[in-house]
Structure formats: structure tokens, C-alpha cells
Simulated scan of single mutants.
Amino acid sequence: MPYPEAYQKVLNADLLIRPLVPEDVPAVLDVERQGYSHPWSESVFLDCFKDNYRVWGACHGGDLVGYAVLAYIVDEAHLLNICVHPRARGEGVGRYLLRYVLATAAHEGMSQLLLEVRVSNHAAIGLYQDEGFREIGLRPGYYPAANGREDARVMMRALGE
């Protein structure tokens, strides 16, 4: 399956975006556990290596510094998880990875990308808005939180425009 030319080598602080494989899951779990208060389990990540999923990693100097997990359903991409290692935050890794998955999803024929984001995650919401996402709904109690549950904003961006 052909990918955009950006797949070959990207020049964002020598960041390389590549498809991840099940053998990358230990490194993904390390980033996940440092990045989230309620991390996904190993079995959830392993379940994402199916034909209708895309699991991308952002690597710098051979080290995994971020990843994104998408599900493709008919002509719609759903960003299920995106995380950047705390040491690499604020360096543009998340923005570059998001732009990469948007371009790849469009290249693969997806018409839009949907995502959920915690209502308290103002940095991510700002990034998504900067990249053309708009809020289309709210999912009450979607995320686990320290004191119960937290709502999610549902955001969408059309692709190929």
C-alpha cells in the first residue's frame, strides 16, 4: 500500500514516522504509562494490529517518542489514541504526528477524522482547533478520572479539502 512521500523520512528534528508492529508494544506502553493517568493495557494495544487499524510511531534517534492509533471504518478515520512522551512535549512532535495521520488517512481515502478529547485537556483541544478540527458533540462520563468520570469533547475534521 503506497504512503505519502513524507513516510520515507521527515525532517522535524530528525523525526521518523513509521508503522508500528506488535514488537513495539513495550515501548508504546512505556510512553502510554508516562503520558496518561489511566493507560491502555497491553492487550488493548495488541488488539489494534488489524487490517482496519493504523498504528504509527514517531521515532527520534531510534527511540519511540510518540504514537497514534486510528481505526478506519468505511470512509471515516477515528483517532483512538495519540500520545507524546513527556520529555518530548512542546517540541512539535504531537502536531507533526497529527498532520501525518491526517495526510495518510486522506491519502487512503478517508473523508473525515473523528476524535474524543478530555474536556480538561486544553493543550490538546487547542492543537486540534489549530489543525482545523471543530467540536461536534460531547460524550458525558467518557473517560475514567481520579474522582469518577470526565466528559469528552467530540471533534471532527473533514479530509481532502
Rank of each mutant, 00 (worst) to 15 (best):
M1F: 04
Y3S: 12
P4M: 01
A6S: 11
A6D: 05
Q8P: 11
K9V: 09
K9I: 14
V10C: 07
V10G: 14
V10T: 04
L11F: 10
N12M: 15
A13L: 15
D14G: 11
L15Q: 07
L16C: 08
R18W: 09
P19V: 01
L20G: 00
V21K: 03
E23A: 11
E23P: 11
D24S: 10
D24C: 10
A27L: 15
V28E: 01
V28T: 00
V28L: 08
V28C: 04
L29E: 02
L29D: 07
L29N: 01
D30F: 06
D30Q: 13
R33N: 11
R33A: 11
G35N: 04
G35F: 02
G35S: 08
H38F: 15
P39H: 09
W40A: 05
W40R: 08
S41P: 03
F45N: 02
C48T: 06
F49K: 00
K50Q: 15
K50W: 02
V55L: 02
W56M: 07
A58E: 00
A58K: 02
C59K: 03
H60I: 12
G61R: 07
G61S: 05
D63F: 07
G66I: 02
A68W: 00
V69N: 04
V69R: 05
L70V: 04
V74H: 12
V74L: 05
V74A: 11
D75I: 07
A77K: 06
A77N: 12
H78S: 14
H78K: 09
L79R: 05
L80A: 10
L80N: 06
H85D: 11
H85W: 09
P86H: 05
P86M: 03
P86Y: 14
R87K: 12
A88V: 02
E91W: 07
E91R: 12
E91S: 13
V93S: 06
G94W: 02
G94K: 04
Y96L: 09
Y96M: 10
L97I: 11
L98W: 09
L98A: 06
R99H: 12
R99G: 14
Y100G: 05
Y100M: 11
V101A: 03
L102F: 13
A103H: 12
T104Q: 03
H107T: 04
M110R: 08
L113S: 00
L114F: 08
R118L: 14
H122V: 08
A124L: 10
G126V: 08
G126Y: 09
L127P: 05
L127N: 11
Y128M: 01
Q129M: 12
Q129N: 15
E131V: 04
G132N: 08
G132Q: 11
R134Q: 13
R134N: 10
I136C: 13
R139T: 08
P140K: 10
P140E: 10
G141Q: 15
G141T: 08
Y143Q: 08
Y143S: 09
Y143G: 06
P144A: 13
A145M: 15
A146F: 15
N147K: 13
N147A: 14
N147P: 13
G148L: 10
G148S: 12
R149S: 12
E150F: 06
D151S: 02
D151P: 03
D151L: 07
R153A: 00
R153Y: 12
V154S: 03
V154G: 03
V154A: 08
M155Y: 06
M156Y: 01
M156P: 03
M156D: 07
R157T: 01
E161N: 15
